[in-house]
Amino acid sequence: MRNANSAFRSTRSRSRNRRSGSSDGTERSQTLAKTDRPSGTGYVLDTTWSARKALEEGLFEDAVRTAILLGHDTDTTSAVANGLTGIKYGIDGIPARWLKQLRRVKIVEPLAVRFLASVRAR
């Protein structure tokens, strides 16, 4: 719990620093540029950077794992990263053991197939 609390305080501190930038944005951009690696905080730029880092992985499963292991706002980072990873690898890139665990596939799959057909028809 100590790690979670310190991570929360650190994120709140960075958030306050970002909001207190000058009117021309220079101080704010300097604060955002303090890190040289993705950290999964959920801010748009960091989410994009974190998702891009996850996309560097060679397998769908590794990309998902990387997005989650960045920590902080894992649901936002993972949603973006895994959506892009799905585009990159397609349904065949998702591990079969994951697909077997999906619920309501019989309902969703026909809808997805119809949606793809309508997109391709355009």
Rank of each mutant, 00 (worst) to 15 (best):
M1E: 13
M1W: 06
N3I: 07
N3L: 11
N3K: 10
N3W: 09
S6A: 13
F8N: 10
S10F: 07
S10E: 12
S10M: 13
T11Y: 07
T11V: 03
S13M: 08
S13H: 10
S13V: 06
S13L: 08
R14L: 09
R14I: 05
S15A: 11
S15T: 06
S15F: 09
R16M: 11
R19K: 13
R19I: 00
R19T: 05
R19Y: 02
S20Q: 12
S20E: 06
G21A: 02
G21T: 00
S22M: 03
G25N: 04
G25K: 01
T26M: 02
E27M: 00
S29T: 02
S29M: 11
Q30N: 04
Q30R: 01
L32Y: 01
K34V: 04
K34E: 10
T35V: 11
P38D: 01
P38G: 04
S39D: 14
G40C: 05
G40M: 02
T41N: 06
Y43N: 01
V44Q: 08
L45R: 03
L45T: 08
D46W: 00
D46F: 07
T48R: 01
W49N: 04
S50Y: 00
R52M: 12
A54N: 01
A54M: 02
L55N: 08
L55P: 00
E56D: 15
G58R: 14
L59N: 08
L59I: 07
F60W: 06
E61H: 12
D62P: 02
A63Y: 03
A63M: 09
V64Q: 06
V64H: 03
V64A: 05
R65D: 02
A67M: 03
L69D: 12
L69H: 04
L69R: 05
L70G: 04
G71S: 07
G71V: 03
H72L: 09
H72I: 06
H72F: 13
H72R: 09
D73E: 07
T74K: 12
D75V: 10
T76Y: 03
T76M: 05
T77C: 04
S78E: 04
A79H: 03
V80S: 07
V80D: 01
V80T: 02
A81C: 10
A81E: 06
A81R: 06
G83F: 07
G83E: 07
L84G: 11
G86F: 05
I87V: 13
K88V: 10
Y89M: 15
Y89N: 09
Y89H: 15
G90Y: 14
I91F: 11
D92W: 08
G93Q: 15
P95C: 02
A96V: 10
R97A: 08
L99R: 14
L99V: 14
Q101F: 07
R104F: 15
R104D: 15
V108F: 13
E109V: 12
E109K: 13
E109Y: 12
E109Q: 11
E109F: 09
P110F: 15
L111A: 15
L111W: 15
A112S: 15
A112T: 15
V113D: 12
V113E: 14
R114S: 15
F115A: 14
L116C: 14
A117Q: 10
A117C: 08
A117K: 10
S118L: 10
S118M: 10
V119N: 13
V119A: 12
R120V: 12
R120N: 13
R120A: 13
